[in-house]
């Protein structure tokens, strides 16, 4: 774990024969011990980036150094330093968790004594001791993801790649996995490169976030800095009478620019910040408009995404020619 290198990527490009660039000139740095959240919709280029950084896919151009080694020229050194849990837990449904551990520890060249010890230790760590001798085919999604994570840690990697580790998991399993990732960085100093399409995941885990859209990084920074960059909160109003929507929109328009709101609501990003909220209420009252609900929203990473791409992250899917995203 004493590796002092993280990830350095410069002008990375990956093209597929029949499609646009899946990665289109990415630059990024991840410091040792940092959790870097790579946030973007389906098809944005997140998984392709992970495949390149884990040496499973050669880049078309550009350079990437992982743990101090070039992913193209020193692939075997990169692989020795990293662990990866790729999209869709890649497990053999016919094997048990213990058999997976035996396979993984042997292929990583652990000695016979170490194999058993490390396997048992990791099964304990990811909470699969009781289920260790059951076939993985009968596991829940959360159990599979935990085993996947355990297998990625077999050779004590200094850098861990997690590609959408919680997609499709229930909230409880998601929180359990977040706890484990936090513990890895806190106690073992592991650098984590995490891709996700969930805003709250990036917010909860990442020290820094890179937002990717159509193969390009459109924003990067700590979640707080990114939200501060947007700076201003939005106010969302649901009129008591549906017929008043236009009138409400006209009043709110004086306080900022319109942003998408929920079904019946009208929303604006407030030019003057939250201090103008009282003014908004007074103006609505003066116009004789009754209000069913009024909400103030602090900026979120979705607002950042919206600001940078003109689209909301929820439901946004970039259409690329290649299956990997």
């Amino acid at each position: 774990m004493g590796d002092r290198h993280g990830i350095e990527v410069s002008q990375l490009v990956r093209e597929f024969p029949k499609g646009p660039r899946a990665i289109d000139g990415i630059d990024l740095q991840v410091a040792p011990g940092e959790v870097y959240g790579f946030l973007g919709p389906n098809g944005a280029g997140k998984s392709t980036t992970v495949l390149v950084l884990t040496t499973l896919l050669p880049p078309t151009s550009g350079t990437a150094r992982v743990a101090g080694h070039d992913v193209v020229r020193e692939g075997h050194l990169v692989r020795a330093a990293i662990g990866a849990a790729l999209q869709e837990a890649a497990l053999d449904p016919l094997l048990t968790a213990r058999e997976h551990m035996r396979l993984q520890t042997t292929l990583h060249g652990l000695s016979r004594a170490d194999r058993k010890r490390r396997g048992d230790e990791l099964l304990e760590r990811v909470g699969l001791v009781e289920a260790a001798d059951r076939r993985v085919g009968g596991y829940s999604g959360g159990m599979k993801r935990r085993l996947d994570l355990g297998l990625a840690l077999v050779h004590r990697p200094s850098i861990l790649f997690l590609d959408e580790p919680t997609t499709g998991l229930d909230p409880q399993s998601r929180t359990a996995l977040w706890d484990e990732v936090s513990r890895l960085t806190r106690e073992d100093g592991v650098t984590v490169f995490l891709t996700t399409q969930y805003l709250e995941e990036a917010d909860a885990l990442a020290h820094r976030v890179g937002i990717i859209d159509r193969g390009r990084i459109v924003a990067e920074g700590t979640p707080r800095a990114l939200k501060d960059e947007i700076g201003r909160p939005s106010v969302e109003v649901v009129p008591a009478n549906d017929g008043d929507r236009d009138a409400v929109a006209a009043v709110l328009g004086k306080f900022g620019e319109s942003v998408p709101g929920l079904n019946q609501s009208v929303a604006v990003r407030m030019r003057g910040g939250e201090s103008e909220l009282a003014e908004v209420v007074r103006a609505l009252d003066a116009a004789g408009l009754s209000v069913a609900q009024l909400r103030l929203h602090a900026p979120t990473l979705d607002d950042v995404f919206l600001e940078k791409t003109g689209r909301s992250l929820e439901g946004a899917t970039t259409e690329l020619g290649e299956g990997t995203s």
Partner: peptide
């Protein structure tokens, strides 16, 4: 193994 990504898992080992 290829379709499920299991081969990729093996490929990340030496």
């Amino acid at each position: 193994d290829i379709q499920t990504g299991f081969l990729n898992r093996l490929a990340l080992t030496p």
